[in-house]
Design a protein around this nucleic acid. Structure first.
Lengths: 194, 194
DNA sequence: AAAAACAAACCGTCAAGTCGGTTTTATTTT
DNA sequence: AAAATAAAACCGACTTGACGGTTTGTTTTT
């Protein structure tokens, strides 16, 4: 690969990482392009060179986050099948990511999309693709279950974790969330068994 | 009550309603004080007279929303005990409100609070109080269950609905959410029975 | 030489908060 | 009861700072 291309990709990645860090730290409402640039140690001019505007930068950043999450889950389901990870462990992992910056970033973006049709249009295909891939992963997780049932359990789980992520803004209590998660694990196992 | 006092309260309520409508329509990121004022048919000066700043207005608006939701639930649990409302109906009602503007408003606020400590401090007591009251309501809903178990089921339900509310930004599919809710109702009944 | 990568100054817009002023209502004085 | 005074409600122009996007300029690669 040519040097220029290489360099270009590098700064793009630096910018995306910086954007995610800013989004996590400042929230979308206080997300500033110049802060992203300085966080990535490049100039604002460089940023505009690589991303045509704020929305463009955000869309690419969210793409990165979702892809990473899918990657982790895809890997984890293999670990489950290999017997190196339990179902509980799998859920712990999901919660880890959901309570993490990744989730908060997606939440910020969801709210933006809600009020800006153009941005929503930009993101909808990505989000759909994301859910399809998560769906496929859960089908793998419960190969014995009817596909539809696995989908339902996945959606219940995802939404529960989403809600917990939201609640964690106001309630900083790891024990509480752990209890809740355990409760859900038990229910889930019950549902899978029957 | 004196006319001034009366008038004052009226415009305050008009402003709070307008603020909520704006928050729902535009989102927090596009929430503008002058729009609130014009929506309430008062001048910007009047707004600043009654609320010292943006945060103050928002905090009072969220207080109103939470109080209304608690009021509805408190009333509904009475209806359940009187046999005029089923558990399914109760959950439908919760979902109705959660998928409604009320939830979106709280979500917007939660994200703001996440990144602004002072605002979070302002709201934390309100949110705690809110949860305590919801908790008490669910204790009434399942008087036979151990208190802690009722609390767990409430929190699972609330968080599930929260997550569903979030997902509904990107997925406009009433049937899907209805299915999901039915699945949860079945699980919940199973849990209460055992 | 041409194009890409990057830098930095610049500009237009926009909204939050301020502030001097006006009108309406309440209280006190005569 | 009328006049005087105080206080609250309300108005809207203005200031101020901020930020996204543009533009112009410089360096490096091909």
């Amino acid at each position: 690969m040519k040097w220029q291309q290489q360099k270009s990709l590098e700064t793009q990645q630096k910018l995306l990482s910086a954007a995610l860090a800013c989004l996590e730290r400042d929230g979308f409402h206080n997300f500033r392009l110049d802060r992203v640039a300085s966080e990535a140690n490049v100039s604002k001019g460089a940023l505009t060179h690589h991303f045509s505007n704020k929305d463009d930068l955000l869309a690419h950043a969210i793409e990165k986050v979702l892809a990473e999450f899918v990657g982790v889950l895809a890997h984890s389901v293999d670990e489950v099948h290999a017997g190196r990870l339990t179902l509980d462990g799998f859920l712990d992992l999901m919660w880890l990511h959901m309570s993490d910056q990744l989730y908060m970033v997606t939440l910020e973006i969801a709210l933006k999309a809600r009020h800006e049709p153009s941005f929503k249009t930009l993101l909808t295909p990505q989000v759909q693709n994301f859910h399809e891939r998560i769906d496929a992963i859960w089908q793998q997780l419960f190969p014995r279950l009817p596909a539809e049932r696995a989908t339902h359990l996945m959606n219940l789980s995802m939404n529960l974790l989403r809600g917990m992520g939201t609640q964690s803004v106001f309630r900083k209590d790891a024990q509480y969330f752990n209890d809740l998660l355990n409760e859900w694990k038990a229910i889930l196992k019950q549902q899978v068994a029957s």
